[in-house]
Design a protein around this nucleic acid. Structure first.
Length: 588
RNA sequence: GGGAUCGUAGCUCAGUUUGGUUAGAGCGCCGCCCUGUCAAGGCGGAGGUCGCGGGUUCGAGCCCCGUCGGUCCCGCCA
């Protein structure tokens, strides 16, 4: 269908265009029909402009748009003029276009939901009509931010001397880590490619090749259960550097984040970022990715309560566990019901219960106060800096579990008391370092890598690898922004012997290691430089910059939490012939 | 794999507690009126597989069982 092509965008019109002849293309945002005069709001990516049709004077023009409704696609020829009644709420509000000719480019069905920003429609329907959902300016703004971050990423890393190199999407399935998405091979029946969980091994091999500084904006795939901030396919800024120490990686990352926040948010972020060890993060905040914009720190009370009369505490301590607490300042008025809800919350994270104390009317009340001596009560109040009207929540047990429970309670209390809401638009940036290198899996009866099997230990802990790896720490680093893991990485093992030992600890036989990772072990014997890197969660950075807590708001065509695409209906069944080509038959 | 919660008009929801006549409201949609609105306004109208299947009952939107789907969370996510 022919149409008059636009001379300017709908969102660009300003008083300086007064009296100019223009042609606009766009979607009808709204129609206000007064009989004698008709207003159409025409929308494109840039904004909305009001079109005026003086129906009284031009009945033929009015008749030509009689059927035009929301979401029809039009071209409009007319003259820009100043409005009699300006609308201060929109950027184009001082002007309007007096139409002389209007053409329908394409009519539209009545949409299943209105294209407005303050949309309350359920996500199921929005995802089924994603192309309509994406017409909403609020969502389009997110993709404008996303685009700017692509540009900043390429500019910054290019300026820093990084080379972008593409790595394969069809790769080898490896054990360890997330479940792989598999792609059957037609030419080699019975064999499979895997989609990469990340280009980890390839970027290390690029270091061996001498590329020195590598980066890539790259899709990664993990076949695991989803969350509000997790999709099965997601984007990383993958970075790797040679001949560096950990500080170099962190400084490079800090420079990038500072640039992004400066250009997109207009905020000057202070660098270097604060650093805390994993142990500090867990014992102070109860999380390895804490939101440090507010306090409510965990306080360890193990020594204070070691000899108290409350067996829940003393039994846990005797078993090697800890007792810790947070002070939910000012929550002393929480009802029994609210405390029960907090207890349920604690139980989701593996707590058996949630002992609590209230300080009100100058005295302590609570679930276990009768087991405490006056000295112990005093010590608790002092340690938690508890004042009149405060509520104290306790957790006991093994260190990581007990801390995690309090960390979850800390977040929940912050949410319920409006602390999180009051922090909207603010950001905190910090590093968490010295993660445990390995953790023992009771389920698998073996050590597993906490980060990944290629992570180097702290030099001080290298000896432990040869004897007992318990307590060994990794040269790993996570960048945490507002409680989100925004990036993570490590210095890698670059010596064959150390890497062999790591596989050994993980329970791989030499033959296993050779079969799964032989190419890496081999590469490490041909002159591998010391190297390390980091990968940013690109979608999460965009989420933070857009201040949304839903990853689907920053991915154009996302999946639901059960991994379905409601628009195109994938995953779908396939033709038996396709399966036959691949040598695959389905189990009934 | 597990837990919570939701599913009623095109959309957002009420109705479910205590089963009972013809399932309601706002927005949207359709028609008419209207020359300065911008969430236009006024009058009128159409519109329902109460997610789906089974059961209990004289009778089910409401109770029971199962199932599908959305969201959030635990496990999982090197």
């Amino acid at each position: 269908m022919s149409f008059e092509q636009r001379t300017i965008s709908c969102g660009a019109l300003r008083p300086e265009h007064d009296t100019q002849h223009v042609t606009l293309n766009g979607w009808v945002n709204a129609r206000r029909d007064y009989g004698g005069i008709i207003f159409l709001d025409l929308r494109d990516r840039d904004g909305v402009t009001q079109i005026v049709i003086p129906a009284e004077q031009e009945p033929e023009l009015a008749a030509s748009i009689k059927d035009v409704r929301s979401e029809w696609v039009l071209w409009v020829k007319g003259v820009v003029r100043m409005r009699e009644n300006p609308n201060p709420n929109i950027p184009t509000g001082l002007v309007e276009v007096r139409a002389h000719q209007i053409g329908v480019i394409n009519p539209a069905n009545v949409p299943p939901f209105e294209i407005v920003d303050d949309l309350l429609t359920n996500e199921e329907l929005r995802l089924a009509y994603r192309y309509l959902d994406l017409r909403r300016p609020a969502l389009q703004r997110n993709f404008i931010v996303r685009n700017r971050l692509y540009q900043i990423t390429h500019q910054y890393f290019a300026e820093q001397g990084f080379l972008e190199v593409e790595t394969p999407v069809l790769t080898k399935s490896t054990p360890e880590g997330a479940r792989d998405f598999l792609v059957p091979s037609r030419i080699n029946k019975g064999r499979f490619y895997a989609l990469p969980q990340s280009p980890q091994l390839f970027k290390q091999l690029l270091m061996v090749s001498g590329f020195d500084k590598y980066m890539q904006i790259v899709k990664c795939f993990r076949d695991e259960d989803l969350r509000a901030d997790r999709q099965p396919e997601f984007t990383q800024i993958d970075v790797e550097m040679s001949f560096i120490r950990q500080d170099d990686i962190l400084a490079t990352a800090e420079g990038f984040v500072r640039r992004a926040w400066s250009e997109i948010r207009g905020m000057e972020v202070q660098t270097p970022f604060a650093r805390m060890t994993w142990h500090e993060a867990m014992s102070t905040y109860g999380s390895d990715k804490p939101d440090i914009r507010y306090g409510m720190h965990l306080v360890t009370l193990t020594d204070t309560l070691r000899t108290c009369a409350f067996s829940v505490f003393t039994d846990a301590i005797a078993a090697g566990g800890i007792v810790a607490a947070i002070n939910a300042t000012g929550c002393g008025a929480f009802s029994r019901k609210q405390i029960d809800e907090l207890t349920d919350h604690a139980k989701k994270y593996g707590a058996k219960g949630m002992p609590w104390l209230k300080f009100a009317g100058g005295e302590l009340t609570g679930s276990f106060v009768k087991f405490l001596s006056a000295d112990e009560q005093q010590a608790i109040l002092q340690a938690l800096d508890a004042k009149e009207g405060d509520l104290m929540l306790f957790s006991v047990g093994e260190f990581e579990r007990a801390c995690t429970v309090l960390g979850a309670l800390r977040t929940e209390v912050a949410r319920r008391t409006g602390i999180l809401e009051s922090l909207r638009g603010t950001f905190s940036f910090h590093w968490v370092t010295e993660f445990p290198l390995l953790e023992y899996s009771d389920e698998e009866q073996r050590w597993v890598a906490r980060h990944h099997p290629f992570t180097a230990p702290l030099p001080d802990d290298m000896q432990r690898l040869m004897t007992d790896p318990t307590g060994s720490r990794a040269l790993a680093h996570d960048l945490v922004i507002n409680g989100y893991e925004a990036a993570g990485g490590s210095v890698r093992i670059h010596e064959n012997a150390v890497q062999q030992r790591m596989f050994d600890l993980l329970g791989f036989t030499q033959a296993d290691a050779e079969a799964k990772f032989g190419f890496l072990l081999s590469a490490l014997q041909y002159g591998a430089p010391p190297h390390g890197g980091i990968a940013f969660g690109f979608d999460r950075l965009v989420m933070l910059l857009c201040e949304t807590d839903n990853i689907r708001d920053v991915i154009a065509f996302p999946k639901t939490t059960s991994g379905l695409s409601l628009m195109d209906g994938c995953p779908s069944t396939v033709d038996t012939r396709q399966l036959g080509d691949l040598g695959i038959s389905l189990v009934q």
